[in-house]
Design a binder for these strands. Structure first.
Lengths: 199, 199
DNA sequence: GCAGTACGGCACGATCCGTGCCGTGTCGTT
DNA sequence: AACGACACGGCACGGATCGTGCCGTACTGC
């Protein structure tokens, strides 16, 4: 009961490699289906058969690279430290010239169709946030964090701050910024017996 | 010493009206210089003479409408209430189908050129945030808010959260969300003698 | 080994880009 | 009031890319 696909894997990989390489070299604006096909030594039909548009190709290509080169999700007994390390890791990926501009291009392209943003969120971003959501829920279960707040809502604010820097280049996407954002978001939420602020 | 412009104002306005109308009707993806020129009854040269690309036209068009239809910036003695009302007003504009998609398109298009995001931020967004920055500085001067934090940095987090919903459609851009974001950001920053949380 | 199908290559009309030219109209100068 | 400069609308052009159709080849599964 194998999947009934006679798709040629070598073409698929050549297309994904060509797409993300061209995007990095020339920018997403100059990325074209014709260019991808030529570079991959493929016919345009082969691309149109398997992907609806060029952003879908690029999304698959980025997905392939990012599953190998993923963020780190430490899980120690210090929740805030875990979150700092996690968000710093995410921001480092977004600051990487090999990934940041491609992510920005995907967000940009999603604006072209109605509902494109939501689809990108559900199919690409949300699955990658699952480990972080789980870590937050764990902290809530442990009584380290107010339980009344949805973890996804917190991550909207945190990732929104990162995307602000990614899309509007308002400053460096470095560890200092990640620390600032995490501290800001959690400084009013952490439950400590003595009420001392987190450092 | 008048500015040496023989530019025809009627053409400029017709082009701006045509651009934003077409963007709303068909979406930014189907917006073309040829379409704008045809709808405005103008020559393409007239557009290329005064704007470098279609996103610049759209930015001018949106700017013209938003200066008339601006957010409200209340200034009472309750800083957090002021911020809630202000951010709720901003989010209402972004939730408006006449403005939100256009703003999203501008952010998306800015990703095409290197530095485009920063340019959009400086020329379009930052000037509109000035009153909010001033209100935050006032609160800091009044001792209502920790003075060590840059207001622009706080607004990055707040607006980032709004843009997350605008660009990724992660939920409604309503007053409840604006309240949540403002409360979250300021809950750890407000200085109160009794240390009670803001409600 | 056979049949089905995915494949690469090529060609096509359509759209939009950015630019050049041309004749007209309007505005500033004298 | 007359002139000259320039912005304007209209049209045309080559180039690029789109999405699709057709054709012959090569690979794959039964």
């Amino acid at each position: 009961m194998k999947p009934p696909t006679r798709r040629r894997e070598s073409s698929r990989l050549a297309i994904l490699d060509a797409a993300i390489a061209l995007c990095r070299e020339e920018g997403y604006g100059k990325l074209s289906i014709e260019g991808i096909a030529a570079r991959a030594g493929a016919g345009k039909h082969t691309i149109y058969r398997w992907w609806p548009n060029k952003s879908a190709v690029l999304m698959d290509a980025l997905d392939r690279e990012m599953t190998a080169n993923s963020a780190t999700f430490p899980h120690t007994d210090d929740f805030v430290a875990d979150m700092r390390a996690t968000i710093a890791s995410v921001s480092a990926i977004q600051a990487n010239p090999d990934f940041g501009p491609v992510i920005a291009a995907l967000i940009a392209e999603a604006q072209q169709q109605p509902g494109g943003g939501r689809q990108l969120l559900e199919s690409f971003f949300k699955p990658r946030r699952v480990p972080i959501v789980e870590r937050i829920r764990q902290a809530q279960a442990d009584g380290e964090l107010r339980a009344a707040i949805e973890p996804e809502l917190l991550l909207e604010v945190i990732f929104g701050a990162l995307y602000h820097r990614l899309l509007l280049q308002s400053g460096p996407l470095d560890e200092a910024y990640a620390d600032f954002v995490v501290k800001l978001v959690f400084s009013g939420l952490i439950t400590r017996p003595d009420g001392s602020p987190i450092s």
